[in-house]
Each structure stands twice: as structure tokens, then as C-alpha cells.
Design a protein around this nucleic acid. Sequence first.
DNA 1: TAAAATAAAAATGTATACAAAAATAGTTTT
DNA 2: AAAACTATTTTTGTATACATTTTTATTTTA
Lengths: 208, 208
Amino acid sequence: MDIRQKIKEDILNNQLPRGLPLRQTALSNRYNVSRIPIRDALLSLKADGWLSPHGKAGVMIPDLHWKEAEDLYLMRAELECLLFNMAFDLIGEQEVKQARSFLLELDQKNLPLISRGELNWCFHNALYKVAKRPTLQRVVEGLNAQAVRYLGFQYGPLGHREKSQNQHEVLLSFIERRDKSAALKHLRQHIEEAGVLLTNYLKKIKTE
Amino acid sequence: MDIRQKIKEDILNNQLPRGLPLRQTALSNRYNVSRIPIRDALLSLKADGWLSPHGKAGVMIPDLHWKEAEDLYLMRAELECLLFNMAFDLIGEQEVKQARSFLLELDQKNLPLISRGELNWCFHNALYKVAKRPTLQRVVEGLNAQAVRYLGFQYGPLGHREKSQNQHEVLLSFIERRDKSAALKHLRQHIEEAGVLLTNYLKKIKTE
DNA sequence: TAAAATAAAAATGTATACAAAAATAGTTTT
DNA sequence: AAAACTATTTTTGTATACATTTTTATTTTA
């Protein structure tokens, strides 16, 4: 597996220090590769919002912040509805079937967070991809990837797994009935609700 | 100046071959640096949508496509209105003044395209930044940076410079009158109009 | 002749070595 | 004692060298 992915997992599982600078040499020892691929990974993760600058040259793992979560979910709501709207008429049985298969995988317990994030994106993307809008799709994919940093709360203290799965099912049923406006409205609510729950939780634990 | 920026300029000015793979060695000779910083720049530009994959490992300069332009401007319209809405009540004389100074710079003739792109972003950002929403701002900045690839059309055959400048002025006057809903509506129209003009033009020259 | 397989080449990816820059510790000065 | 400067150490950035992969050209086979 590639370094970038390993670092993301280690960030999610709190295996790397938060706030302190990540040292390329230390990471190159940890993952048994030279500094070059480490450097690549750090630059790339910084560009994707998984790392932030530390001082003039270093990078660090940024804190999770309600403002970031809120922004990510606000953007997801707007852009995914835009994309879903473009896709809707082109979604066929094929896509619904594929989406359902990802849903089934998501039902597994003890799935690593990063896999949950990927599968969740695969579900949504199975519906979006028929729109054939690569640029919009790429941005939306990036937002979903960033939101993964917050998944520990959703599947942990917020216990949002079951509700989210139900909403996914309902979305598919609206699609099968070809009820576009209901599907759109439901998708927006699905995203907004997750965002509000997460944001409020983050605000709360901040003040405590 | 850093390599990344130079490559962007050379892409805009058609100094590099479109569609063909960009060879790291060739670029390292062209810019008189080793392959490592070239590689960094190519990876980073690929992540930002300025380059696309070519084959299994290489990168190339992607064609300009109406679909991409349309997506970029649709996203800009949604997200910038979101951000502007958050910023509006916090925009003071300071910010309007700063925005106007960028507008003045944009009035210069014979400004390189890449500078026009930067100044245009600076104008918008001068208004957005008071919202203090780094995540949303970063995504919007990325969209603006991608849209720069299409600026050659806007300032060339479309001759959209003057109109755009007028719209910027009108936006500032709505802000000074503290007319939020008019300002918001106008910002959306400003972005959507630019998008529609660009998209239609790209569609047209495609079929000719 | 076209397709598949193989061999040669050229390109990218990674490791190590070195240069430049940044961070730290120590010293001096006020 | 605090601030400012200097020297040292550490860290990142870049160059060169090597390994691996990918691409291209050639040959073989159907």
C-alpha cells in the first residue's frame, strides 16, 4: 500500500502526534522508505487539507474544528445536489444495484474508518458518475475525502451509522420510483443532517 | 520565482505541447533545475487540475473543455455566494478600499493573464476573507485558480474585461449601501454570466 | 497482414549525498 | 531578567545515482 494512505490511516487512528511538526526523517524510518516519497506524501496531504503548515517549512496534523466540518458539509450539500441533479435521469438499474452492493459492505461491523469513508464515497459516486462531469465529480470527491477526517465522531460518539444507512436506502427507493424532487430533497437533508450533528457535537466538546 | 508558477505561465502562453506527455528531463533542462522540483511541481499541478494523467505515469496538459468551464463556474456561483453571505455583515470600509485597489490594478492594459487571474481573486477574496472560513475559502480559491486556465478566452475573443470590471464596481456600490440581497444576487449573476458566455463560446468553437 | 510476444529504450520512482534554510541553544548586551 | 544577536544543530530542499516501471521497437506467430 502506498505511503500516503498509510499516513492517513495513522492520522485517523491517532498514531501520529497532533499539532507537532511531522519530521520527514522520523516518518522515513517509521515507514522504511527514503525521504523522497515521504516528502511527496506530505506535500500531497497538505494540498488535500489533511496536513497544515507548521512554521515556515514543516507540516502538522491540524485540529478538527467545527468550522471546517460545517464548511465541508455545506459545500457537500450544494455541490452533491448539483451533481446528483445532473445525474438523476441517467441513473439506471445497473447503478442502483452497484450502489446497493456498497451499502451491503457498509453494513459490516469492525470496518476500519478509512474503508467506511471510501465505501460511503463509492455509494454516492455510483449514482453521480453517470452524469459524466469529471470536474465537478473531482471536487466533490475531494470534499468527501476531507470529511473522512471527521468520521471518527460520526461512527463513534454520534452513532450516526444506522441512520445514515437508512437514509441511503430511502434515497435508492426514491430513485427507483423515479421521484427526482423527493430524491434531491432527501439527499440534501441526508448531507445537511450529518453536517449539523457533527458541527454541533464539535462545538459542544470544545466548550466542555 | 518557483517552478510551479513558471510552468503555469508556460501552459497559459502555449509554450508547452498540449496532449503530449510532459517529460521531467525535458522540463528540468528547460528550467535549469533537477528533476525533483520538477516532479514536485507536476504532482502538485496534477492535483490542482492543471495537468492530467497521460498513460500510467506521465502527465499532460489537458484540453480546455466547455464541460469543465461550466462546472467550475457553477461551483463558483454556489460556493462564492455561500461565502459572501457569511462575509457580508463583516465587510467594512477597509475591505472595500482594498478591493477597489485591486480593481484599479486590473484596469491596466497588457497585464499577463496569470496576473489578471491573481488580481481577480484578490478582489473577490478581499471581500470573502473577513468571513474567516478557511476551508470554504481554500476550496473557492482552488476553483478560481482552475478557472485561470480559461482566462485567455475571456480576455481575448470574448472581450469580457470591461463588463466584468463594471460588475465589480456595481458590487462594491451595493456593499457600500449595505444592500445584502442585491449584492448577493449581483455576485451570482456576475459569476453565472461569465460562466455562460465562456461555456457557450467553447461549445461553439468545438463544432466549427 | 495483424496480433501477440519479446527485447530494447526511455521514462518515472526511490535512495543517498549534499546545499540551503530554519529552528534551537547559547551568549552577549541592555 | 528580558531581548537581541550569534553559533550550532537540525531539518528541509535539491542534485545526482540507481532501481523499477512503462513505453516503444522489433521479432515471432497465427
